[in-house]
Write a protein that binds this DNA or RNA. Structure first.
Length: 743
DNA sequence: GAGTTTGAAACT
DNA sequence: CAGTTTCAAACTC
């Protein structure tokens, strides 16, 4: 039956019940009728593609993390489990809850619904589904029972789902549509840039004939009958992928599945959600693939990139994909899901919230990729100006969010790194899958991608030293990289991890964000000082002698932060603040003006900034970015991202006249890493939530920075003008998000 | 695009 | 810890 059923139906219905429903003429009728279908599907599809394209390099787990991968994963699971344990019954109930419904909707997986709604009816099926489908996790995620994080996820889902919720029928149809679109893009999906994903899919496909058509088919096939098969599939798939992380995940999923099976359907519902939730926290974000298997595979692939993200991973996946999707076919798959989510996210800054709780990622990795990605996104759809804008806006916010989340990580950065730091693993989808259409598209588009995703050019370091920007950022090298003899690739994961460990052993903070929000050790006390942009400081400080800290040679300048007492620079003229504490507000300082001119940015003087703020008071609050930003990451376009910047700015300017001029108000110099934005962001503006997260997250207990006393901060804080200026700047950044709403 | 400059990272 | 070398990005032409 299932095999016979159309792919769509298969895709949509993971559970037998669902399949039945789908089969029902009514279901078909609805699908045909739903007007929503055409619109969203198209949009989503585009978005996906865009996202996919945009998705840049994956972030790979920091070596630390990598070492801890297993533990982390476990940790996730544990956390999830804990929540589950707390209220397993609740979880079961959750499905009934609106949130659960929303989450389900979000997932776009009927399976999830079927599971939640009809756990009893098809216990085995449920188990199977649960096992297969991360959706269930998502589901659970949505369940109120889940911890705050889950709630966040739910929020996201809610946002996404809300529309669907409006009409259950529509939801189904929409889902179908989405799936259809997905299926239509099946070819794309099948083609994963990342080897892992591709392999995974291939494996799946090979194993499951249904998959050939597309995920949908595979999904449809997998759900009921082939639980064991699916499990096997997953195992095999994972094995094929050869990725340990994936394997681990799969193992976990399998275990969970088994447990579910043992427990029974009802238990499964709760179990599946939680346990999987643990695993799938990450997975869920990705995807909402109808197929648990496909999802799992995809997820695995994603994990490769975001091995250690844990919480972050989810965020990253969701956000990143859109952001960084530029090149990754993997992302495409995930990106689709993500896109869906991202689209949904548009609606709400909640997504950002979701991120907040999450863990921070390495900003570095994100930074380079993100801004670029966003730009790419926009550019990618030049023809579809509006669409592009929408996507771009949407993406931007998500971007911002992701970035911010990452930033948060950064802030906590040091801590984060140490703890669970999230290293992002970048898998080069493109590298892996040169054939991916998306890739082609990218290529088609003139080089922004190249620019955006431009990476290292290492020749002798094999990209296994901190000389390598990619490696230092905790990401794998990807196509855009011009490196030679590169070992910083998933293929050499072991080597990379080992090297990272080695480097970390030498310097635990080697992979930590270079720029830290608060230089002062008393992060908490210094909140005030920290808030000031000046508070952001380079971890170690620079040692510039000839560049006067006015060029990107200077890490402080590059990071968009002022020099601090930690700096041993000579003749410091850092526009963001000299080490002597004299704060040069970018706006005030000549350097600042120069920078502004260079970047075609409006130099903000305090007065101007204030004016700006007054003019656009709402901008900050409204923008999700604010939330996201909390972290330090910047939204700044990197120099590399100039194109993106331009687009960014233009969009901002257009969308928000608040800024008044098309020009962006950006103080930060073009930085490879997001950090500069951090400065701009100004912690003051950060949403309380973010702050809380950041403060909580981070502050590393023993960050070297802490040692630093930040006289400049005090000064800054003392000088209202400066502060205001920065605040303004921050606001300007948030403005991005504001754009989205316009659409 | 090639060559130079620069400063961080790595090494001694 | 300091000095030197190596390295790759940033910059210049």
């Amino acid at each position: 039956m299932e095999m016979d059923t159309p792919e769509r139906t298969h895709v949509v219905s993971s559970s037998t019940a669902i399949s039945k429903v789908e089969e029902s003429p009514v279901f078909n009728f609805l699908n045909n009728l739903s007007p929503i279908k055409p619109a969203k599907p198209v949009h989503l599809t585009q978005t996906f593609s865009s996202l996919t394209f945009a998705s840049p390099p994956a972030i790979f787990t920091s070596p630390h993390i990598s070492s801890d991968r297993e533990s982390r994963f476990l940790g996730r699971c544990q956390t999830v489990n804990i929540s589950e344990q707390k209220s397993p019954s609740k979880n079961v109930d959750k499905p009934s809850t609106n949130e659960g419904a929303e989450s389900e909707l979000q997932d776009n997986l009927d399976k999830g619904k079927s599971i939640a709604s009809t756990p009893v009816e098809q216990p085995t099926g449920h188990t199977e589904f649960a096992n297969e489908v991360p959706h269930t996790f998502m589901y659970d995620f949505g369940s109120p029972d889940c911890g705050p994080i889950r709630k966040v996820g739910l929020r996201r889902c809610q946002n996404i789902d809300h529309p669907q919720q409006e009409d259950p029928k529509n939801n189904q149809t929409e889902q179908r549509c989405d799936w259809e679109s997905l299926v239509s893009d099946a070819a794309d999906l099948l083609i994963f840039s990342s080897p892992n994903d591709a392999e995974a899919f291939r494996g799946i496909i090979q194993k499951s004939p249904g998959l050939e058509r597309g995920l949908g088919t595979s999904l449809s096939n997998l759900p009921q009958n082939n639980i064991t098969d699916s499990q096997k599939m997953q195992h095999s798939f994972q094995l094929d992928s050869g990725e340990q992380a994936d394997a681990e995940v799969t193992l976990e999923s399998l275990e969970i599945k088994k447990a579910r099976e043992d427990l029974g359907c009802d238990d499964l519902a709760s179990m599946g959600i939680h346990p999987s939730g643990g695993l799938e926290d990450e997975a869920t974000p990705f995807g909402l693939f109808a197929d648990g298997k496909s999802l799992s595979n995809l997820q695995h692939g994603m994990r490769r990139r975001c091995l250690d993200f844990e919480m972050v991973g989810v965020h990253c996946r969701k956000k990143f994909p859109s952001i960084c999707s530029s090149s990754h076919s993997k992302d495409n798959n995930t990106s689709k899901n993500l896109q869906l989510k991202s689209l949904n996210n548009k609606r709400g800054g909640e997504s950002s919230r979701f991120i907040l709780p999450g863990i921070g990622l390495h900003l570095n990795s994100l930074a380079s990729g993100n801004s670029d990605c966003s730009a790419e996104m926009v550019e990618i759809f030049p023809s579809e100006s509006q669409a592009a804008l929408l996507t771009g806006q949407e993406l931007l916010p998500t971007h911002m969010i992701s970035t911010t989340s990452e930033k948060g990580a950064d802030e906590s950065g040091d801590i984060v790194v140490e703890d669970n730091s999230l290293a992002l693993v970048l898998v080069d989808p493109e590298e892996l899958n040169p054939d991916s259409p998306r890739k082609k598209r990218r290529k088609v588009e003139p080089g922004e991608e190249a620019e955006a995703c431009k990476r290292c050019n290492c020749k002798k370091s094999k990209c296994l030293k901190l000389y390598c920007e990619c490696f230092a950022a905790g990401v794998y090298c990807i196509e855009p990289c011009a490196c030679q003899d590169c070992f910083n690739k998933p293929i050499h994961e072991d080597t990379v991890l080992a090297t990272r460990k080695q480097i970390e052993s030498r310097n635990p903070l080697a992979f930590a964000p270079k720029v830290i929000r608060g230089s002062d050790s008393n992060t908490e006390n210094r909140d005030e000082s920290m808030k000031t942009p000046a508070s952001a400081r380079h971890k170690r400080g620079c040692n510039c002698k000839k560049s006067s800290c006015l060029k990107k040679y200077c890490e402080c300048y590059q990071g968009g932060v002022g020099c601090s007492i930690n700096c041993r620079c000579e003749g410091c003229k850092n526009a963001f603040g000299t080490k002597d504490g004299s704060v040069l507000l970018v706006a005030d300082s000549e350097a600042g003006e120069e920078l502004a001119e260079k970047h075609d940015v409006i130099s903000l003087k305090p007065e101007n900034l204030r004016a700006e703020e007054q003019a656009h008071p709402s901008v900050l609050p409204n923008t999700p970015s604010g939330l996201s930003r909390p972290t330090e990451q910047m939204a700044f376009p990197t120099s590399k991202c100039k194109p993106s910047q331009s687009s960014f700015l233009a969009k901002l300017g257009n969308s928000t006249e608040k800024i008044g001029k098309s020009k962006l108000i950006v103080l930060a110099p073009p930085t490879k890493f997001e950090k500069p934005p951090q400065q701009l962001e100004g912690e003051d503006e950060m949403p309380q939530v973010l702050r809380g997260t950041t403060s909580g997250m981070s502050q590393k207990t023993a960050s070297p920075n802490g040692k630093r006393v930040s006289p400049p901060h005090g000064e800054l804080s003392s000088t209202p003008s400066l502060r205001s200026g920065r605040r303004l700047i921050l606001q300007s950044i948030p403005s991005f998000p504001s754009l989205t709403p316009q659409h």
